[in-house]
Amino acid sequence: MTLFRRSEFIIACILFAAMIIIGLINPAFWSLDNLFGLLRSNVIIGIMALGVLVVMISGGIDVSFTAFAAAAMYLTIKLMIYTGYEGVFLPFVAATLIGLFLGAFNAFFIHTFRMIPLIVTLGTGSVVRGLLLGLVGTSVINIDKMPQQLIAFAKTDLVSLTSATGTNFGLTAMILIYLGLALVTHLFLTYTMAGRSIFALGGAPEAASRVGFNTRRTLFFVYCFAGALAGFAGLLHGSMIWLANPRDFAGLELDVIAAVVLGGASIFGGRGSVIGTLLGVFMLVMVKNSLIIMKVDTTWQRVVVGLIIIVATALTAWRDRKKLV
């Protein structure tokens, strides 16, 4: 396949054109302040999108990961406050494990009862969020109570600059975590047998099991991976915005799925790439955040996201079109 026919190349071109248009409407788009802000907004959605990408390549879909992220964030921070634990590494391990455990629950239901992933994950998402809000609590943990180490950790900047007006801004170091996870996911998907088994399962489940892939293990891996990334992203989100709100992330699953589809992944499975997903996430975040710069009323945000989903899926449906059925 030549470079020009790759969907990543087409997405990159569209992204570049969109950046030029937004820049023409308001040159403030190109200010470092704005660009750094955009990159920062990529981190959380991006990490979640990597998980959803892997699920989609396997031919499934996950709408429960936002509830898992909220649960992992809220439980971990509550536990940290309760025990007075001060540290950064262990809490992130804990949040990741909570997400992983909940993801295994998804895989169990999907595999054991052969049920459509959308319906299973709708159910598990509702169960987890209901339990979290109903039993653990609904109150927001604000900056006074937040563990200071987490905040300090998430405050780390790669570059710190002072703008003309005297305010400080910087590029968050969290972007490195995001890009690191993306690289690992890419290498895993491309160069390991387990990674290829995900493509095989998504492309043709029957064929995958006939040639000897353990589809059960692959399925468990996929949903645990998505859950673990969501749990990690959840705690990172709390650290970055300095508060833990158990109602956070509601509705974010649509944005993440839209970004992954925009990045060229097929909902039928078997197709998708990390580079495409990175571009898709950047595109979605950029368009959403630039509405204000382009002086469009923010009430239009949802309409724009909906339109992006429709256009992106129409394009991939056209690409994947089959004859007759």
Partner: peptide, 13 residues
């Protein structure tokens, strides 16, 4: 799934 996810956003929007 994707078509109605997108149109659902548009209608709500």
């Amino acid at each position: 799934i994707l078509a109605t996810l997108g149109t659902g956003q548009i209608f709500t929007g």
